[in-house]
Write a protein that binds this DNA or RNA. Sequence first.
DNA 1: ACGCAAATATGCGTGGTGCGCAATTTTATG
DNA 2: CATAAAATTGCGCACCACGCATATTTGCGT
Lengths: 201, 201
Amino acid sequence: MGLRERKKAGTRAALSWAALRLAAERGLDNVKVEDIAEAAGVSPRTFNNYFSSKGEAIATHHLDRCLRIAEALRERPAEPLWDAITHAVLPQFEPGTAVADQPAPDPAKWTAGVRTVLDEPAVQGELLRAGARAEAEIAAAVADRTGTDPEQDLYPHLVASAVMAAINTAMAHHLRTDPPVPASRLLTDALACIAAGLPAP
Amino acid sequence: MGLRERKKAGTRAALSWAALRLAAERGLDNVKVEDIAEAAGVSPRTFNNYFSSKGEAIATHHLDRCLRIAEALRERPAEPLWDAITHAVLPQFEPGTAVADQPAPDPAKWTAGVRTVLDEPAVQGELLRAGARAEAEIAAAVADRTGTDPEQDLYPHLVASAVMAAINTAMAHHLRTDPPVPASRLLTDALACIAAGLPAP
DNA sequence: ACGCAAATATGCGTGGTGCGCAATTTTATG
DNA sequence: CATAAAATTGCGCACCACGCATATTTGCGT
């Protein structure tokens, strides 16, 4: 990867992290695009060259994570489908994988702030949009693996959609509970339940 | 239902239909809130008393449809869960159930216009948000039926999420195909596939 | 090492939008 | 019919997405 792309990825990351951090501290609409740009050391106009809204900047974290799932799926062509999916999903939600930055002044305040931000309607919408985008990639990966055609068959999209459903449900539950149930347990349960056809309990 | 609520529902319907119709005719961003309000016979300010964006006004149709699914689910407590779900979902997507208004000047132009509108990012986001809202209602219905607790158990949310996944996937495929495959077949296939645990083909 | 072309960042201007506030009209109730 | 509650309306403001023109940085061939 050349200097060009690295700088681009750098400012993108700086912008999205700044957006999340500031929003978690002050609340989403007490943060202006100007503030985020300043925190990332770029011009306000540049922010909109990368993201078209504050919500999108924040949701990028989720998008990247889910795109990594599709990537991981392609690296496990040997296992049975649902085993591969489980093993592709879980590592992306290990604590410490992404938050290993400097935004940890107080872990309690931090998670509370994040929870508040994620309740914001604008952010929720963007998270869903991110999930939809990732779904396409996952569907493509599943299609390759199973020899189905994304244009023709429902199957790959259905699997991808169900996986995202499991993730969203598990994460929603994770945010809802206090003290938080570990995400890994919720995710394995949810995926197993779906792979079992969601039988009535 | 009193006069008050009926008028309220009336203007809400008028606004959302006007929004969809105008957007399908001219394209979403060639329509200003002012135009929609005028077409519905209310003040521009009133539009924002009902919806906070054009996309939300349009997505209301989808939301209402999905809420009716939750309602229908509660009216079928006898059947096995997935039979009830299938029977609750299908009628809401019968052609002619909702479009029986006056917006049918040319069916070809109409569906093409709708397809264009649904490609708009703003609308997609709102559709996803509508799905998420409906999901909560469906989850509640499933929880009642299965004796699970939405606050505590993953199961009802997981089922609701999977149902919405099936609907979204089926509708996306329905819009993608030309000539369109009947939605009913896609929906039954998708729901059956999920109830079977999405086995690799 | 140098220079050219492409990609990227920036500044400015503009139309549109979401929403708070206060006044007015319409509806429900006793 | 009177009074309270709710909905609609008009006004106004702050914010934001985005197009366009310009300056700067990066990649690459020589």
